[in-house]
């Protein structure tokens, strides 16, 4: 190793210096958007967040006339991806999917991030939790299931995601609203809805509280049946499934996906994105693929969205506190 040789240094400079200058990102003064946009997804490919983000990105790409690349930045139960979105340059070239977990992560003590660290643009989808059992289970409706839980507390087990995850909160809230203690139907942690459903049909657990869109494939395949959905109103794609509210249990919860940009996004860029997303959310490419997949589109923006996020944060926070999850 002899860097002292003048020739070596010459090569070094002659070859690398121009490249370095060329490859540096030069901020242009062109109108937004003038280069590809990255759309960060904090969850793995194939999941609901990923699929809806990809459908949205495909629509946005046509509307904005610039490539919108979906990048999965997974890890840490969503912490890594959410952090990456909030820490990106607020120049409109990095957007991301911020999911319901943003209201929960900061209470688990794994991150300081809250929804206030972003510029919220729009709510894309909101999938209510369901109460799903095996197709051959003896309960025909939600009342029979509650009766069973009441008579034999602690015997039935539920699953759907990790302990303290969104579907666990759904279970806790459901039991609470039905006047039952949390231990009446204990939680079996799983790595997500797919393994939980595998457990369900293998007769490992009795109830899964994942969203309707997640159980839809198995429901159509005739392996499971859904007794109720935890929504305010019946879902347009599933008019036959009653809500919990109808049976007198006032409880609704859902897993939602919103589009956010880093904090302090300049107003003109925000306006461009706002109108583009508004068109994309009504684009048939997005709407038809979402409704086919059983996903519930709920479009909110502006003040309404901020109100929604704040409310979600306090509701989920209270739930976690009651259940003794997190700090």
């Amino acid at each position: 190793m002899n860097l002292s040789k003048p020739r070596t240094l010459f090569y070094l400079f002659a070859i690398f210096i121009p490249i370095i200058f060329l490859s540096c990102n030069q901020p242009g003064n062109k109108t937004y958007p003038s280069r590809p946009i990255s759309f960060l997804v904090p969850w793995a490919p194939g999941g609901m967040t990923d699929l809806s983000s990809r459908a949205m990105a495909a629509s946005l790409q046509n509307i904005l006339g610039t490539p919108v690349n979906v990048v999965n930045r997974t890890g840490g139960g969503g912490v890594v991806g959410h952090t990456a979105i909030s820490q990106a340059q607020p120049d409109g070239y990095t957007l991301g999917a911020v999911t319901v977990e943003i209201t929960m992560m900061h209470r688990m003590g794994v991150t300081q991030l809250t929804h206030q660290d972003y510029t919220p643009l729009a709510l894309m989808i909101n999938n209510p939790a369901s109460i799903t059992v095996r197709a051959d289970a003896p309960w025909e409706n939600i009342d029979e299931l509650i009766e069973e839980i009441r008579n034999h507390p602690g015997e039935l087990q539920a699953s759907g995601t990790a302990r303290g995850g969104i579907w666990d909160l759904a279970r806790i809230g459901f039991l609470e609203a039905a006047g039952l203690p949390e231990s009446a139907m204990p939680w079996v942690p799983s790595q997500g809805s797919a393994p939980a459903l595998q457990e369900l049909i293998a007769e490992g657990v009795d109830v899964v509280t994942a969203s309707l869109s997640e159980v839809d494939a198995l429901r159509k395949a005739g392996q499971v049946k859904t007794l109720a959905v935890m929504a305010e109103d019946r879902l347009p794609q599933f008019p036959e499934i009653p809500t919990l509210k109808e049976t007198g249990i006032d409880w609704s919860i859902g897993g939602w996906v919103s589009i956010c940009a880093p904090k302090n996004l300049p107003a003109p860029i925000r306006a461009t994105l706002d109108s583009a997303i508004m068109i994309a959310a009504k684009d048939s490419l997005f709407t038809s693929s979402m409704s086919q997949a059983g996903s519930n589109i709920q479009y909110l923006h502006g003040e309404k969205l901020i109100h929604f996020l704040t409310k979600q944060d306090s509701i989920n926070g209270a739930m976690m506190k009651n259940a003794g999850i997190g700090q």
Partner: peptide, 28 residues
């Protein structure tokens, strides 16, 4: 983040080649 992908990767490749006793021009 400063040099971009092309700049930083080629610099590191060059330096590793140098460590492996490859002639500088060839490594570059």
């Amino acid at each position: 983040p400063y040099l971009g992908f092309i700049g930083s990767i080629s610099l590191i490749g060059f330096a590793i080649g140098f460590l492996l006793n490859v002639k500088p021009w060839l490594a570059a």
